[in-house]
Amino acid sequence: MSFEFNKRFDALFWRWAKRRTSAQKTVTLKHRAIYVLPSKAGVCFFVAVILLWLLGTNYENNLVLAASFFLVSLFIVAIIHGFRNLAGLQLTALPARPVFAGEPLELSVRLKARAGTTSGRVSLAADVNRAVVTDVAKDTEEQLALRLATQGRGWFTPERILVQSYYPLGLLRTWSWVRFDVRLLVYPKPLACAQPATIGRDDGERSATQLQGDDFDGFKRYQPGAPLTHIAWKLYARGAGLHIKQYASAELDSVWLDFRAVSGDREARLSALCYLALQWHQAGRTFGLRLLEQQIEPASGQEHLHRVLQALALFELEQEPL
């Protein structure tokens, strides 16, 4: 019951807090977005102070009253220091490497304290059960990596990031919600398919590509995007520069990843094409992509693989660049 109440309260509070913040790539925490409430330890501390004050009043003990007043003053000072610990803290979202759907995505966040100050024991979390804690020293920057759960393909935007601290005494929870104006790419989840390598071509059109055979046929200078498995490392070790091993090849039809050539619903087809793209890239093959009205010409290399996977990720979704 308590857990359900906390979730409901959190959802209501977030809807209210969301109106007070704006999504930005670099967020600076200001007084309107910083909230301070007693922690569990702080509530117990405050109850103990009240009991101490009642005890001193009842027995007219000035020493006990002075101790209770001192503890109240300490609590008030903790409020000020806790608020100043987060005030002015600057958070910047950094680019993240694309992942496949279902894999955790690592979002790097750079933290910088207000000029001339430090921020102690600051924690960031996209999931309250996976917080990352750090200290931001004066005039320095810290970088944290947050793990975000992903589900579907396409652009992924973290809804909110929790920034909180129990500095300095653990009696108060000072926190803020941060929204980053950043979109992170999630590829389709690769799933093995029963189809062999798909051969697709337009009617009346025949394009050829060179697929590697088994017979060695000399060396040539390295070109960006060539498979690393074909680099002649022995020549490189002798100082001859980067060369690629050439093999006798047979001229075959250009290999295409064709959306129409695989079976299943839309997501199953995209997952199968993603799997084939990874397999063919690892084998050093040259291939193209056909997605209904969209087409990517045959090529190879890491950049080409990214273009193909991005096209699969954004198929029939919003396709604006980041």
Rank of each mutant, 00 (worst) to 15 (best):
L37C: 09
E141D: 14
V128R: 15
E297K: 10
G218W: 06
C193H: 12
H81C: 09
G225N: 10
T174C: 14
Y222I: 02
V308K: 01
H230A: 08
R269E: 12
L312W: 00
L270M: 04
T26L: 15
R20E: 04
D217Y: 09
R153F: 05
N61S: 05
A101W: 05
S249P: 02
R285H: 08
R19E: 06
P95F: 11
V99G: 13
L228C: 01
V36A: 08
L71Q: 07
V132Y: 11
F70W: 15
L54A: 13
T28N: 07
K189F: 02
E205F: 14
L144Q: 03
F100A: 14
R269M: 04
V27H: 04
E251V: 12
Q223R: 11
E267N: 01
S263M: 06
A67F: 11
A131E: 15
K40Y: 05
V262C: 09
E60W: 03
N6H: 13
Q151I: 08
I79M: 08
I161V: 07
G288V: 00
L172V: 13
S300K: 08
E267M: 01
P95Y: 09
H306F: 09
A226P: 03
T229Q: 07
A101I: 05
Q302Y: 13
T157V: 06
L52H: 05
S2W: 05
L71P: 04
A226V: 03
A17E: 12
L270N: 01
A261N: 06
A232N: 09
F83Q: 06
R8N: 03
Q319D: 12
E303G: 09
G170V: 08
G42V: 02
L111Y: 04
L242I: 14
H31A: 13
Q282G: 14
E303D: 10
V182A: 05
L105N: 00
A48E: 14
S176V: 14
Q223M: 08
G218H: 09
L12S: 04
Q295E: 06
V182I: 01
K40D: 01
S263D: 08
F3H: 09
L305D: 02
L292T: 05
P196F: 04
G120I: 07
S119C: 04
